[in-house]
Design a protein around this nucleic acid. Structure first.
Lengths: 253, 253
DNA sequence: ACTTAAATGAACATAAATGTGCATAATGAG
DNA sequence: CTCATTATGCACATTTATGTTCATTTAAGT
């Protein structure tokens, strides 16, 4: 079994069970515990799962009852800067999609006082953040609530996205490669992102530098589908050059 | 068992039992009492549970402002009772729709510990209430977020409802007339409720007695569309008789 | 208020999990 | 095929979670 596939299966398994021990996973996949630990370290980097002693869990269980809006403390500074810069790309009167995720939640916070916007999102936190803004029409895509999270995915999400057309989509992505493009370890979430890209005229990627250069199982889109990438200064010159060769406007903040 | 899992289960247990002793928890999870104490200290930090000598209880929000407004509390009590009774009508393995509203939210609170349920709702609060329940699959209909609320309505809501089929819908309704049936003052919300009724084999109405006997602009459905009405004892015998003539099973709590 | 038994928190001991360096096996390119 | 690269397994020093003990605090009854 390929490493990326094993990682994808680990995520699936943990999402379903909510917790898993290292020993348990090592037995399931017939690999050494050290291998599972390495896998989990990488997966945690993607922000998908949270490690604990003896095992792993979905993020929301780790800080048992983090309230509606305040569980976004990792790489906070970078994400805030990226979110602020992204907000500058939103013009009054536009219709936009905001993907689920902590970075897009920061973007949403920067849009609160804007007017005449229509915002489509599959993230309940994003929707909650914008619901009191008089100038913003909030549309939540339907879908299955991902276990213990606030994201919506699945058939109904895709159904709604299919009948939508917006100016711009702001997409978070856990894995981005200079050559192989956008990837995601989870099939369902990858599908949602594909739908979002299709619904938008312009795709704007929000990804801090830790996401760049890795690979993952499911392909979301090639780099040519992206118009703009907002990231931080931790990206190598060589990577930036390669993205620009795909006609991506790279903005570092 | 992982520490995070134990903590999550402690919260779950105390939520269900309202109180628990240290000794009790130590025995349940087969760990030393000191470990439980450490767990509780951390959980208390999150503000979910409140420690006492010898044990722990849930943080009470209802009692703090108890006699604030008698009439409000009377309604609250009715709604809680209606919600509890409605939960009895839900069987394991069923697919149900929960309408938006405070009464259905109380129903949702009574479903938290159930298993093998699929719950469709257009209320973000209901979805949030159920999101941590391992036995419940939560599906949020999409739609426009109603200004300053947590309800979803509009075209996308209708679109999703059209492709759904469930066993039962639990519907809140602001206006119910013994002859003229279900009504609603707002066209969009009326439309959503029509869609929900169409998607379900059985329609169960949750309406305290204050809603009964009035009229409103938009008709949602005739009384013949309703299978069960759960209300409180404030309904007149005459009204009940008329509902029963429409083959409605009237339950007063 | 006083007494008593239980619960608590802190300090320490112990067992388990972790990360790291290195050796080995698998994979891919030329 | 050979070589380079990556992934995996293994051993061990370090860290973390849990168990144990005990002086101090708290709750309840008289």
């Amino acid at each position: 079994m390929l490493a990326v596939e094993r990682k994808a299966r680990i995520i699936e398994y943990v999402r379903k069970q909510r917790v898993a021990t290292i020993a348990e996973l090592a037995q399931i996949f017939s690999v050494h515990e050290a291998t599972i630990r390495r896998d989990l370290s990488e997966i945690e980097q993607d922000g998908v799962l949270k490690r604990t002693h003896g095992g792993v869990t979905i993020e929301e269980w780790a800080n048992s009852e983090a309230s509606f809006n305040d569980r976004y403390n990792e790489r906070l500074d970078q994400k805030m800067r990226i979110g602020r810069k992204a907000a500058e790309l939103v013009k009054d009167g536009e219709h936009i999609i905001l993907d689920s995720g902590t970075t897009t939640l920061h973007l949403a916070k920067n849009l609160v006082h804007r007017s005449n916007l229509s915002v489509v999102t599959n993230d309940m936190n994003v929707a909650a953040e914008l619901r009191d803004s008089p100038g913003i029409k909030v549309i939540l895509t339907g879908g299955d609530l991902y276990p213990s999270s606030y994201m919506l995915n699945g058939m109904f999400t895709d159904l709604v996205l299919e009948s939508l057309h917006v100016h711009k989509v702001f997409l978070g992505i856990p894995v981005l490669h200079p050559q192989h493009g956008l990837m995601h370890p989870e099939a369902k979430l990858a599908q949602t992102k594909i739908g979002m890209i299709r619904a938008a005229q312009q795709t704007i990627l929000l990804a801090d530098s830790s996401k760049i250069g890795k690979v993952s199982l499911h392909s979301v889109a090639p780099n040519s589908a992206v118009h703009t990438l907002i990231t931080d200064k931790g990206v190598s010159e060589n990577d930036i050059k390669q993205f620009r060769e795909h006609d991506i406007d790279v903005i570092t903040v």
